[in-house]
Amino acid sequence: MIRVLIVDDEALVRTGLAMILAPATDLEVVAEAVDGAGALDAVTRHRVDVVLMDVRMPGVDGLSALERIAERPDPPKVIMLTTFDLDDYVHRALRAGASGFLLKDTPPRDLVTAVRLVAGGDAMLAPSVTKRLITAFAERRPARAAAARERLQVLTTREQDVVKAVARGLSNADIGRELAMSEATVKAHVSRALAKLGLTNRVQAAILVHDTGLAT
């Protein structure tokens, strides 16, 4: 069972998200919170696998809560929700370790899929803005690109192939089919690559690859 925490300052939004997730028999909404402070408390009191959290909230906002959640040992995955697809807060959230970014008007089926994917270790970005969002990090200044390429040198050739596929937005299953390896092997490669690079999740790996200018 995937245990979910919903964080939004609008009761109507929280109710709507809970109703969307309710029919999924493998998902359970274990708590709700109205702001970042409440999210931190809920994560402490409940065993949470995935947090669906609004970016903009009064008091402790989503970004501040994300940064503090990321500092916890074995933190839950966090999907940030926003109304604006190019919100600067979202850029910062992905840098801080968010596992996903979705617009609030994401279709219900896609929202449920996103929770499952993120819980399983994948990343989930709103399809309509994936390329623009990641490219926004990749200004490709020569010094920045050179530094990013140097960082990738700690990876084996196969690990580099895998993280480049991650940067293209492929799931573990898709990468396995493309590179002729099992999904479990892909997951192992991703985990090792993240550890070697000192990164938290696939989104950060994708950003690093785009920084190199090598993403295709």
Rank of each mutant, 00 (worst) to 15 (best):
G169P: 12
T130D: 09
R144T: 13
A98Q: 04
M124K: 10
T135W: 11
F101N: 02
F137E: 05
E67R: 13
D105H: 13
E67T: 07
R92L: 10
V115M: 00
F101G: 01
P108C: 04
A138G: 15
V115C: 01
A98V: 02
L133R: 12
L86T: 14
G97M: 02
L86G: 11
S99G: 13
L155R: 11
L81A: 07
A167H: 08
R68L: 08
D85V: 03
E71I: 03
I134G: 06
V129A: 08
V90M: 14
G169T: 03
A93T: 03
T82C: 08
R149N: 10
T156Y: 01
E67F: 00
T82G: 09
P73N: 00
L111P: 13
E139R: 12
V78Q: 06
L152W: 03
Q153E: 14
D85I: 00
F101W: 01
R158T: 13
I79E: 01
R141I: 09
L103Y: 06
L103Q: 05
A143P: 08
V166K: 02
S99A: 14
A119F: 08
K164E: 15
L111V: 05
A145P: 07
V118T: 08
A96L: 02
V162N: 09
R92C: 06
R151N: 10
L102V: 06
P75M: 02
A65W: 11
E139L: 12
L117V: 08
K131L: 14
G121D: 03
D161Q: 15
T106W: 02
L117E: 13
R72G: 02
V90D: 06
D122K: 00
L103T: 07
K77E: 09
T113Q: 14
G120H: 04
D88P: 15
R149Q: 14
S99Q: 14
A98T: 05
D88K: 12
L102K: 04
F101T: 02
G169R: 01
L66A: 05
A70D: 00
I79W: 01
Q153S: 13
K77F: 04
T130K: 15
D122N: 12
T130F: 15
A138P: 07
R141H: 12
R116A: 01
R132V: 11
K164P: 11
I69D: 03
V154E: 09
V112M: 04
P75L: 00
D110H: 15
Y89F: 15
S99I: 00
V78G: 06
T106S: 10
E67Y: 01
T156Q: 04
I79M: 00
G100Y: 00
R151F: 07
T83M: 14
H91M: 13
F101E: 02
A119N: 10
L152C: 07
L111N: 04
L133P: 05
V78I: 06
D122V: 02
L117T: 12
E139D: 10
F101R: 01
R95S: 11
A167M: 07
G120N: 13
A146D: 14
A93S: 13
M124W: 11
A65N: 10
A148M: 09
T156M: 04
R144A: 14
V166F: 04
